[in-house]
Simulated scan of single mutants.
Amino acid sequence: MGDSDFTGLRGAEFERADMTGERFTTVNLDAATFRAGELNGVVMRGVEMINTSVDGEIRNLVVNGVDVVPLVEAELDRRHPDRRTFRPTTPEGFREAWDLDERLGESTVARARRLPEELLHESVDGAWPFIRTVRHLAFATESGVGRCLLGDPSPWHPLSLPWDRMRPRPGVPHDRDARPPLEEALALRREATAMMRRVVDGLTAVQLDSRTEPLVGPGRPDEGETFPLREYLLAVLDEEWWHRMYAERDLAVLEDQD
């Protein structure tokens, strides 16, 4: 099929566009880029997917009749044996996981320190720069632990950074343009990790199986919501693992540029 068979939308950009329920038939998406998108419940039939890369939270992905997610998860565990530690089921397991997270994080920071600081503000292939990632991890811990588990209605530092898909909302920091020095960002992150350390060090089995109190005040997550405590601790660990992996991937690219 030639280019003349398609309506010309090459180079178009769709930002914060809600296309729920849309149908795409006989479309060419070669070399398209999807960032911070949601593809839940998508059905693809008769498609070609060659040389395609997908990173993100993926569950129940059926390819040619096979749920490939368990296969991917098993391969990731084989490549990264430490990853299993980040799925604890007991208070002792959560303490072990956070011990490991702190050690791995220190190794990643040591790697970043060897680069010129200006490179740590640079994006690699559209991903977050290293210092922005550090700010986001602080936000994730402040939200998951400070707000949800400890009940602080507004636990965020002004430099903490939510994910790109989150629209600005009252009381929640959202400064995308800030360029703090590495040490300032790391100090922010240390405060957040110390909060998580205090929680896991005192964690009991009864607490682990409890639910959080309804959230108070505007913010993210939303006011009035409540969560299983275990679920949010696991979410913090998952966020830590993946963002460190992304940072390591991008640091390798920056090292080649240096």
Rank of each mutant, 00 (worst) to 15 (best):
D5M: 06
R10W: 03
A12C: 12
F14M: 10
R16G: 09
T20Q: 10
T20Y: 02
R23T: 09
A31R: 14
A32T: 11
T33V: 12
T33N: 08
A36D: 15
L39K: 05
V43I: 12
V43Q: 14
R45W: 08
N51R: 14
S53W: 10
L61D: 05
V62L: 03
G65V: 04
G65F: 00
V66S: 04
V66C: 06
L71C: 04
L71P: 02
E73R: 11
A74H: 08
L76T: 07
R78L: 13
R79D: 11
H80E: 15
H80I: 14
P81N: 10
R83C: 02
P91I: 07
A97V: 05
D99Q: 15
R103D: 11
G105V: 02
G105W: 10
T108C: 08
T108H: 08
R114A: 14
L115A: 11
L115S: 08
E118H: 14
E118I: 07
H121P: 03
A127F: 11
T133E: 14
H136E: 05
L137T: 08
F139E: 01
E142F: 07
G146K: 03
R147M: 10
L149V: 15
L150I: 05
L150D: 08
G151T: 02
P158I: 06
P158Y: 04
L161P: 04
W163D: 13
R165P: 07
M166I: 14
P170Q: 02
P173A: 04
P173F: 05
P180D: 01
E183D: 15
E183W: 01
A185G: 09
R190H: 12
A194F: 03
R197N: 06
R198I: 00
L203D: 02
V206T: 15
V206R: 15
V206K: 15
L208C: 03
P214R: 04
L215F: 01
V216F: 00
V216G: 00
P218C: 01
R220A: 14
P221V: 02
D222H: 08
T226Q: 12
T226F: 01
P228F: 01
L229N: 12
R230P: 06
L233E: 06
L233C: 04
L237R: 00
D238K: 11
R249T: 05
D250C: 01
L251A: 13
